Amino acid sequence: MSTSSRVAGGGVPSGSASSIVAGVVCGYHLLKIDGYSRTKEVPNGKWIDSCPFQVGGRTWHVSYYPNGDESEYTDFICLFLCLDDAIAETVKAQAKFSLMDKYGKPVPLHTATTATSDFSVANSCGLDFMERGELEKSEHLKDDSFIVKVDVTIMSEFHAQETPSIVVPPSDMHRHFGDLLSSKAGVDVEFRVGGETFLAHRLVLAARSPVFRAELFGPMKESATTNAICIDDIEAEVFKALLAFIYTDALPAMDQQEESAMAQHLLVAADRYDLERLKLICEDKLCNRIDTNSVATILALTEQHNCPELKAACLVFLSLTTNLEAAMKSEGFEYLTKSCPGVMKDLLMC
């Protein structure tokens, strides 16, 4: 039996088979933590529950502790398997928690199994899954989200065999489209950006961006079809990352310093090409990069590209006098006052 749920968002496609053989019932659940950075605001000892799921005719859920379940585990992510049903008989089970890689495979280094527990005595069992620092440095935290597979094994005295079902792996459409872009097979549109040439597929661009759709299939389509399209106000590396996102729905790996600058440039490009999800991803990344040197530049971007939540985060940061005084000495603050005079009124109201 398989199910999936997401903390702070929608669902994750999944599939599996379950069986009752030789006294054991097995099943799994996929849990996606979406908006990981925001879940870190949950205090130590507090948790977020997943959607309920079924294994062995019982209803279960996973409790996710972003900052540990006890004071000594504040640097750890802790996970607990919980039984929702009220029971009188003995139910013995164990849980195996596995961090999933980008291909939907468990990461052996970050796979751990609980001891077998009697859920008629205590309705949960869990463990300190991994240190937050390890997760944040790993490639498995993508777009501020990660996936954990929860394998549930229930000890049973039954010996019936269930009809198996087909195991459906996670979608890998993004990989195929990424390969299509890399191979340049069938490309039919050319862009010249910052002295570099980029080849792409008009149908893919039009499907992802209404702006590209208008440019490539609207009244101006003839010139866009027969000539290379020159883009003068976007850097080549930014356009390369933009194309990669259009094809794969993900951003390339970057270090923290690169990520902050790239997120600012990509936010502008995302707004220009009406890529709302990319724009929100950039806003989220910048929310975690606000400091006295960057806040003025980021605040100017929020005014120019309509980012109210990111703007609110900047104003909260500047509401502290020490932060405001330091930010006023930055290079970007003078530009902010000249280009976005309305922001000064907002600052006075903080």
Results as ranks from 00 to 15, higher is better:
Ser2Lys: 02
Ser4Asp: 13
Ser5Phe: 05
Arg6Cys: 15
Gly9Trp: 03
Gly10Asp: 13
Gly10Arg: 14
Val12Ile: 11
Ser14Val: 02
Gly15Thr: 15
Gly15Cys: 09
Ala22Cys: 07
Gly35Asn: 10
Ser37Cys: 02
Ile48Arg: 03
Ser50Asp: 09
Gly56His: 10
Gly57Phe: 01
Gly57Ser: 07
Arg58Lys: 15
Thr59Asp: 01
Trp60Gly: 01
Cys82Leu: 03
Ile87Tyr: 00
Val91Gly: 13
Val91Asp: 07
Gln94Asn: 12
Pro106Trp: 06
Ala112Lys: 15
Thr116Gly: 02
Thr116Val: 12
Phe119Asp: 05
Ser120Arg: 00
Asp128Gln: 13
Phe129Met: 06
Glu134Ala: 13
Ser138Glu: 05
Glu139Thr: 08
Leu141Val: 04
Asp143Val: 07
Ser145Thr: 04
Ile147Lys: 08
Gln161Ile: 15
Pro169Gly: 02
Pro170Lys: 03
Gly178Asp: 07
Leu180Gly: 04
Asp188Lys: 08
Asp188Glu: 05
Gly195Arg: 06
Phe198Pro: 02
Val204Met: 03
Arg213Ile: 08
Thr226Glu: 14
Asn227Val: 01
Asp232Lys: 09
Ile234His: 08
Lys240Asp: 14
Leu243His: 10
Leu251Trp: 03
Pro252Gln: 04
Ser260Ile: 00
Ala261Ser: 11
His265Arg: 15
Leu266Thr: 02
Leu275Tyr: 01
Glu276Phe: 05
Arg277Ile: 07
Cys287Gly: 12
Asp291Gln: 09
Ser294Leu: 02
Thr297Gln: 04
Leu301Gly: 05
Asn306Gly: 05
Cys307Ala: 10
Leu315Asp: 10
Thr321Glu: 07
Leu324Asn: 03
Ala326Cys: 12
Tyr335Trp: 12
Leu336Met: 09
Leu336Ile: 14
